[in-house]
Design a protein around this nucleic acid. Structure first.
Length: 200
DNA sequence: AGCACGATTAACT
DNA sequence: GTTAATCGTGCTC
């Protein structure tokens, strides 16, 4: 399947976050089988440039944030809470940095492999959170900086199919309670209404 | 060199 | 509803 073109990510970060809803996240596992795990993106958040107090980019250009200042459509994968990985896609326009956090996907293919990685948990908890989907799809820091516009690579993003627009709900971002206003309350979280794999 | 805290999760009362 | 787990990052001294 064709990946979303790099130009898709060359727009205001919130627009990209909204339009990623329904798109497919395709993870090709290493090894002879090249088994594919697929998740439909159902929840995202936009993180803007250095002015955004909730974004890691607030620290400016550092070793950690470097990817967010780099080429569009690449993966920003970071480690947090001493145990979790989070996956973002670099997207921005007229901003020095910007990325979309993928918060939840709906499992479409490779469920057996996801269950293996998420042992003992019910299917509805497989990928309904940013760290959960990384664990289910075997996304770690090894994929940081990866080009997500390359379908031959281990991870890429494909357009939604069918291409019809999903019903989108909008709210404030999660997990940033210590962040100053207005950043804490900006409507930068997007999810597909009524989807059962949205977090919370 | 030390420290506070985090774009979270799972388990618990 | 609360809390432990667990460590990289950025900031202060």
């Amino acid at each position: 399947m064709e990946p979303l073109p790099r130009s898709f990510y060359d727009r205001d970060t919130p627009l990209v976050a909204r339009d990623l809803l329904g798109a497919h996240l395709v993870r090709t596992l290493p090894g002879p089988g090249r088994r594919q795990l697929i998740g439909r993106i159902v929840e995202t958040e936009a993180y803007l440039g250095p002015a955004d107090a909730a974004s890691h980019a607030r620290a400016g250009r550092t070793a950690r944030t470097e990817v967010m200042f780099g080429p569009l459509g690449h993966a920003y994968v970071y480690f947090t809470y001493g145990m979790h990985w989070m996956l973002n896609v670099v997207a921005r326009r007229n901003e020095p940095a910007g990325a979309v956090l993928l918060r939840s996907v709906e499992p479409l293919a490779g469920l057996e492999s996801m269950r293996q990685r998420r042992t003992g948990l019910p299917d509805k908890e497989l990928t309904n959170g940013p760290a959960k989907l990384c664990q289910a799809l075997a996304v770690t820091g090894a994929l940081n900086g990866l080009d997500l516009c390359d379908a031959a690579g281990p991870l890429y993003v494909a357009p939604r199919s069918p291409p019809s627009d999903p019903l989108v709900a909008i709210g404030s971002r999660i997990g940033i309670r210590n962040v100053s206003e207005p950043w804490r309350s900006l409507p930068l979280r997007f999810w597909i209404e009524h989807n059962r794999f949205v977090s919370r």
